[in-house]
């Protein structure tokens, strides 16, 4: 076992992990942060996306020991402490950007990474950025619309469902 220390959503976090412990397992099982989801075994679905040192990564495809000393943010750190949703989360609610909600944590974290680099993306930018985030329910239109709305752009002309 190896001791890992990192910052998760601004707070110090530590634990003893095996070499094979994935970052997502550490977050869900050791930290109790079950908002980050596991939707596949093949690194393809993006339900597990978190930020490590500000970059979107698949937490199912990174070892916990590789996050030694890192700043990690998860979906739990997105809303304000009183539960007020952040702009992206609120836009998902306003524009019906989720149905079952399983993909949503990864979608919101990917959207946050996109808007940090590209604050006014085009619809095509959003669709390309979500290449690695799979949704079984919505058909994506409302997710794209929500992210465009969260970037402060007029979405009245974007197709919804």
């Amino acid at each position: 076992m190896t001791e890992v220390k990192m910052t998760v959503n601004g707070k110090a976090a530590s634990g003893n992990v095996e070499g094979r412990t994935l970052l997502v397992q550490f977050l869900r099982e050791d930290m109790g942060l079950t908002g980050t989801h596991v939707g596949c075994d093949t690194s393809q679905c993006g339900a597990c996306v978190v930020h490590v040192n500000g970059e979107a990564v698949k937490s199912c495809t990174m070892l916990a020991v590789e996050a030694q000393g890192a700043e990690v943010s998860t979906i739990e750190g997105q809303a304000a402490p009183d539960g007020t949703l952040n702009t992206i989360q609120q836009a998902f609610q306003d524009h019906h950007g989720l149905q079952c909600g399983f993909c949503t944590p990864g979608m919101v974290m990917s959207a946050a990474a996109l808007l940090k680099d590209n604050p006014k993306p085009t619809e095509s930018d959003v669709r390309h950025y979500l290449d690695g985030n799979i949704c079984r329910c919505t058909g994506y239109h409302n997710i794209v619309k929500a992210i465009m709305a969260a970037s402060g752009q007029d979405v009245s002309a974007i197709a919804g469902e």
Partner: peptide, 9 residues
Amino acid sequence: IGDPAVRNR
């Protein structure tokens, strides 16, 4: 290559 999260690692 792949998607943004894959490209970051």
